[in-house]
Design a protein around this nucleic acid. Structure first.
Ligand SMILES: [Mn+2]
Length: 373
DNA sequence: ATGTTAGGCCAC
DNA sequence: AAACGTGGCCTAACAT
């Protein structure tokens, strides 16, 4: 009573929710303390009015403190913000970004923040994004013809996967409509496999994404069906795991080395983590290098071309640039050529997919639509 | 006053 | 839950 409360303090919030208000903790932090993260707060929102206010404050302060308040004070004299890209700061060969702003963690669905990144007069922002790049890499490395076949077909990728795994009778394009849960499950397994997730994690993920309970057993059934359908993918994972466990290192297709000494740990959990790191490295590193090598080639080619286009950021599987309006089509052709170039890692006749967004700013029209009229 | 850790959360 | 991979930034709380 009468005491100050700081909603940004997890320590104080724990006391308020679990001691004073009598709410029940549902999850613990790594150190054993009761968690107050968004997942916990959402559950508690039905029983008390405090959690939803905390969620609201967290969301707003995140945007304000991390992004909006960082822009104006850090602009150069030309009203541009210049931040850093680090090439030697990850174990996978990805870039990272830091300094005045991390350009690789701009909120995906926030047009207010993204709308601040604008092209100059007569130019547009052009963003290229590789489509399911890591899965494409896995399909090539494992030489799984069924998985490669899904890329060759084209269309709704996760829908096609679901159709195969669940033996659905409708057309691939109709899966999203008639079997949304199956599609969600297939999607979760696809990405889960890239991270080495187990049935438990995948069931949690599908439950969260679909809003309907999806049991661990259901998840295991999907995983089994998945690996039955994509048998060579499974064999490749097992083969790679064995190599990692026996050698304590692994090389990517492009020659990057990941050292994994903890495969010899006494701790089963640590050993498991090390193997998952190695497996993920194989796809994450190569997918990133396809984007990076493509961007480097494009940058060099852009010097020799009669139009102006400046690449200003790389976000793991995407290339952002400011491009003269008249040159956008030519720029797209050039970028596509660079990222789809055969570097020895392509599905024959089916290069990795890429798509483009074009707009005045990085929100691609959403900011103007919602706030500008 | 400065440095480190914990918890949380943003991205791919 | 070392369990689902790779990063960086923010605040509070604690340590030097
Ligand atoms: Mn993508």
């Amino acid at each position: 009573q009468e005491k100050e409360f700081n909603p940004n303090s997890t320590v104080q919030l724990r006391t308020l929710l679990f001691d004073y208000a009598g709410l029940k903790p549902s999850k613990k932090t790594p150190t054993g303390a009761p968690s107050t993260d968004a997942e916990v707060l959402k559950k508690l929102a039905d029983e008390h009015e405090i959690p939803k206010h905390i969620l609201s404050i967290r969301q707003k302060s995140k945007i304000k403190n991390t992004y909006l308040d960082k822009i104006l004070p850090q602009l150069d004299s030309d009203d541009r913000l210049r931040t850093g890209f680090n090439i030697h700061s990850t174990t996978s060969g990805r870039l990272s970004s830091s300094g005045k702003m991390n350009m690789q963690q701009i909120p995906r669905d926030n047009p207010i923040v993204k709308g601040c990144i604008r092209a100059k007069e007569g130019n547009k922002i052009v963003a290229m994004d590789l489509t399911t790049a890591e899965v494409y890499v896995a399909a090539v490395l494992s030489n799984d013809k069924n998985l490669q076949g899904v890329f060759k077909e084209g269309g709704d990728f996760h829908g096609s996967i679901a159709k195969l795994v669940f033996n659905l009778k409708c057309k691939g394009e109709e899966v999203a409509k008639y079997y949304p849960t199956q599609r969600q499950a297939a999607k979760a397994v696809t990405f889960g496999i890239m991270y080495g997730a187990g049935a438990h994690k995948i069931s949690e993920q599908v439950t969260k994404d679909s809003g309907e309970p999806f049991s661990k057993h259901d998840a295991q059934v999907v995983i089994d069906g998945y690996f039955k359908q994509f048998n060579k993918l499974k064999l490749w994972i097992d083969r790679s795991s064995k190599f990692i466990e026996e050698n304590g290192f692994i090389y990517s297709y492009f020659g990057r080395k990941r050292r994994l000494p903890n495969v010899k740990s006494d701790n089963r959990g640590i050993r498991g983590h090390e193997v998952r790191s190695g497996l993920n490295f194989l796809v994450q590193s190569v997918a990133s290098d396809i984007n990076l090598l493509g961007a480097i080639d494009a940058h060099n080619m852009l010097k020799e071309v009669p139009f102006k286009a400046d690449i200003f950021a790389l976000v793991h599987d995407s290339i952002l640039a400011e491009v003269e309006e008249d040159a956008i089509d030519a720029y797209k052709v050039l970028i596509r050529e660079c990222v789809q170039k055969d570097r020895g890692l392509s599905i024959p006749g089916c290069p990795v997919g890429c798509d483009f967004d074009v707009g005045e700013d990085y929100s691609f029209g959403k900011f103007a639509k919602e706030y500008d009229i």
